[in-house]
Computed example of a mutant assay.
Amino acid sequence: MEDKSNIIHCETPQAFNRIIGIRTYHPLISVIDFSQIAEYRHPQGWKQDYYVIALCRGNLSCDVKYGRNKYDYSDGTLVFTSPGQTVEFQEYGEPFCPAEDNWAIMVHPDFIRGTSLGRDIGNYIFFSYEIHEALHLSEDEIEQVLDIFKHIRQELEKQIDEYTPEIVCSYIGTLLSYCRRFYDRQFKMRHSENMDIVSHFEKLLRDYFLTNALVQNGLPTVKYFADRMSLSPDYLTAILQRETGMNTRKHIQNRIIETAKDKLALDSHSISQIAYELGFEYPQYFTRLFKQQTGMTPAEYRQRKS
């Protein structure tokens, strides 16, 4: 189905297969070798109601926009999208001529529902990463990924039976576990770039608490900082967790508590007024957080400092 903006909405992998002209072995899951399909022209974009794991490599021309960013694939890259997300193509109307070894797995949530993969897939946060936060693979890693893609395709091309979902979900789970390992390797290799992100975040966080932003906008959110850094919230959190041992929310909470301590020690304002100055809508929320983080109420902390 195509909307007025020429974004094609595919509800199932089977619907996508019909558009690109390949055979469907199971309506809720598909493994595609793009070098084997007929040439077609880029739509403005795809909106898909299923998970996609796509391997892009070689001389593939696939300049895509996802969220706020675009990415030009020229190397071995894995991209993950989750149901309801939209990928737009900068080369709208141009021929899509995929190179060899460009593959995709497309799996509908109903296929994995009730399985261990269905229960665990929300833990693979890279499905919510931005396109420019994709996973870049070594040649050995590409071969591991391709091997799993091909095993899944072989299983689907056999007679579909009651064992098929269990076997296929096991392969997909193994693939995602490898991807988690590969992302860990990528984060380690990008330590210097990651520390630049940490420094940028810390400056934004510091500036937020030094300006009137607290009074005007209330307490900052993870999304607030991720948006200003052109990162997805989960990717920002993953970097901060790896490089500092604390996630984004913990960094924000620590800044709130340190600012609160300064105000409690130096200001004569009431605790309720300090809570409002810190962006809390209700003073009791401030008191609860402060005690959770310090083991004392704001009043007890102030009394100890007096």
Rank of each mutant, 00 (worst) to 15 (best):
Y73R: 12
D33P: 00
V31D: 07
I7N: 03
D75L: 07
V107T: 10
R181G: 11
Y66E: 10
D147S: 15
R206T: 13
H251G: 04
H42E: 06
L55N: 03
F89L: 08
F149P: 08
Y50W: 06
E143Q: 14
I20H: 00
D49E: 13
E130N: 08
A134K: 04
A260V: 04
I167K: 01
K263T: 06
I53C: 09
Y183A: 02
M106Y: 02
H136Q: 12
V31K: 14
S82D: 09
A38N: 10
E157V: 00
V215T: 12
I131P: 00
E243F: 00
H269Q: 08
T211M: 07
Y235N: 08
Y71M: 12
P233K: 00
G76H: 01
K250R: 15
Q14V: 11
V31W: 11
V198N: 02
G173V: 05
Y178H: 12
L205R: 02
C97W: 01
F80M: 06
I142M: 13
N247E: 12
F126K: 02
E2F: 07
L146H: 03
S177K: 13
S116Y: 08
D262I: 06
T221S: 14
A38T: 09
H151R: 15
Q293L: 05
L156M: 05
W103F: 15
